[in-house]
Amino acid sequence: MKEKNFDLGNFLRKFGIYFVLILMMIILSFLSKSFMTVSNMMNILRQVSVSGIVAMGMTLVLVTGGIDLSVGSMIAFAGVIGCTFAHPDPSYPLIVVILIGLAAGALCGLVNGLIVAYTGVNPFIATMGMMTIARGATLLFTNGRPINDLSESFQFIGRGTVGFISTPILFLIAVCIISALILHKTSLGRYIFAVGGNENAAKVSGINVKKIKIFVYIYSGILCGLAGLLLASRTNAAAPNAASGYELDAIAAGVIGGTSTSGGRGGVYGTIVGALIMVVLSNGLDMLNVSSYIQQIVKGIIIIGAVCIDQFSKGKDS
């Protein structure tokens, strides 16, 4: 008695998003000669690197049924902390700067995770608190001024190239691979899905739910640390008010990519496509010289459309 026919909702949820991206790229390449060029593709990948990395961490958090609103603030926080050690004089080895940046992000993430796992405070509230705290700490630390005068070696991570590929793209690829392995190949990834799919059943199956939750928030924090360093290196300064609103971009990338905000469903491949869709969209519309006002409207429509598909397919499941 089971339906074995073509299930449009399921199909759209699984593959629709890839078609949207491809369709967008085809349309844009007709509209603008310079869109489909190697240098512009590199340009797009460079632009997606920071938001894409953040969205990877967000995806893991979303799959557990949580949310991380503090990513923008953690990016700024890790950026200024890391860049404090990235001046040419006294100079520290690049690896030290990176580790400090990642540690700053990890620390914020750890606090998020501990609060969410142990106090029962809703992740929305807990990370909203961290959003304000980390931003405040950043402003306090910098006294509201950007940190500049960054060393040559530090500039390499955001602006350099290896062969013909920009370093941020390499970081993005590495983060994608690591995230995909964690989420889709390890037992940890299985448990992340389990916690989001049915927290009580996960507990009954002997899974340490608290540990899983803490892990995803730390992971999100570490990736924000990396993103903060890349952003600072790319723009040549760590601004205390940088990256505000990035949480929404990251959530949108996840949701467009088919990750459910109620947890238990999603994946990193969809997320990277979601992030690409947003960047391709603004890149293409910029090239066509479309006003930023219209761009905002189009972005909103895409996000709502993606969630509609999500809801539609969920309705089909039950």
Binding site: S32, S34, F35, T37, S39, N40, N43, R46, Q47, V50, L231, R234, T235, A237, A239, A242, A243, S282, N283, D286, M287, L288, N289, S291, S292, Y293
Partner: peptide
Amino acid sequence: AESVCNWDRAEAMTAIENYVQS
């Protein structure tokens, strides 16, 4: 071309990169 970049360094960078590419 005109773009709203909200006083933000990263946003301005992205916009100009895109214009240059075009």
